[in-house]
Design a protein around this nucleic acid. Structure first.
Lengths: 237, 237
DNA sequence: TTATATATTGACTTAAAGACTATATATAAT
DNA sequence: ATTATATATAGTCTTTAAGTCAATATATAA
């Protein structure tokens, strides 16, 4: 680095400039009782005090090395989970979304198995079925953010195996299909779904089958959920 | 708004907090002489003075109402164009990418017809073939940003008609196919490509055909490039 | 008039999804 | 034990859009 640049950096003070607020917000999804749920926070500080919002907050410049760490930190605070599926959705920034001024938020969504959630009884947070959450008047522009996150999840579900990240360690293909159907809000053809999952080899048969119901079903486990795996064709619309 | 919240907002001063820098960077692509090019800037200010970088910069809290406006403003400054195709790619934020401190950048890519570029002779900016740009040592983490933008363009090209945004007003199907091939870095089957474009009706025949070469080819114009149009199936890999 | 290059179309093949039917196997009722 | 019932699982035909390959059309140039 040149001494010239060094001089510049020494005299540089970020607070001499007008810059926007920057936050990370997230839609944390899980399946509870056959319904897609999202975690909402009851805000007990200004602004928008008293309203429900998506979990999120400021980047901690000391603790967070990067944005994903901010997201993971928030996620851990609210769920006690270290490594659920996490994906960045979109960044929204404008002059009006926050009464404190120009504000930018980086939106993530997370998928997790509700059975693994540690912090089930945090007083300020609560799981809402997505359809109910959509009807609430959320803080800031969080209704739009929730919609964007859900749309992204829905879209991904039509050509990836992401919903596996919502499943418990062991699951049947019927259970997996049901979760796909919950997200897509429509029924899928059984044979087609099974063939798709099986030929893609995104799932490992445990042999150790069996479960509830009438005829027992084979139990599978996920081979790992990757952002980069795509089925050859999307599900028909 | 409660008077309580009013009081909070009055006492709120963003400069009391540690917040990251926020910038918008963009990969502006166009086709020049049968090659995919990207616009780079010769930096004449600190930091990273003297290096090449993607165009971009700070959000202007006074002028820009939202992030897309920031991106459009930058784009206009560098190309003189008001409405090329613009799409947000991803946001990168960490403690190390900018020597001034924790920094967040929202990455966009733009596609435009080079023939429409007004500002062809800006002294600080220059078009580079993407393959050459990749080999340059760009400022900050802009090599990674360029790669992300290009990867996104490539991916989109396999299941959308986005590359139409790179075409002049009138073009033949062969010319369009060539642009797809340039981006995908591989040949495509002719018959298949034409059928795909034609049955999707993303293009309007002008009747007024004719052009260079041996046998004359029909001229088409774009029906408009939409982020939300998807072919039923992606191109085979 | 013929050669050549590029444009354009016809028609067969392939792959993965959808649709429908048949079979298998568990529990519960008789 | 036998039968009924529900769910799991597999077989197979159809459909659709892409890939493949070959044939035809129409400019320009020799």
């Amino acid at each position: 680095m040149s001494s010239d640049e060094n001089k510049y950096l020494k005299s540089y003070n970020i607070k001499d400039y007008d810059i926007p607020l920057a936050t990370v917000d997230m839609s944390i999804f899980s399946i509870i009782d056959g319904t897609l749920n999202v975690l909402l926070i009851h805000r007990d500080t200004h602004p928008e005090k008293g309203k429900l919002s998506l979990p999120g907050g400021f980047i901690n410049l000391k603790e967070d090395q990067n944005l994903d760490e901010t997201a993971h930190r928030k996620l851990f605070e609210k769920t006690g989970l270290k490594s659920p599926y996490l994906e960045q959705v979109e960044t929204t920034g404008n002059a009006t979304r926050d009464p404190r001024g120009w504000s930018v938020t980086i939106l993530y969504f997370a998928l997790l198995d509700f059975g693994k959630v540690k912090e089930k009884a945090l007083k300020d947070s609560k799981w809402f079925p997505v359809n109910k959450a959509k009807k609430e008047k959320l803080a800031f522009d969080h209704n739009e953010l929730l919609e964007k996150a859900f749309d992204r999840l829905k879209s991904r579900t039509s050509y990836t195996a992401l919903p596996m990240a919502l499943m418990p360690n062991l699951f049947t293909l019927t259970e997996l299909q049901t979760v796909f159907e919950i997200i897509l809000e429509k029924k899928l053809p059984i044979k087609s779904f099974r063939r798709r999952i099986l030929t893609a080899e995104v799932v490992i048969p445990t042999g150790e089958s069996k479960l509830s119901g009438k005829r027992n079903a084979q139990l599978f486990k996920s081979k790992g959920v990757s952002k980069d795996f795509y089925f050859q064709r999307p599900l028909q619309v």
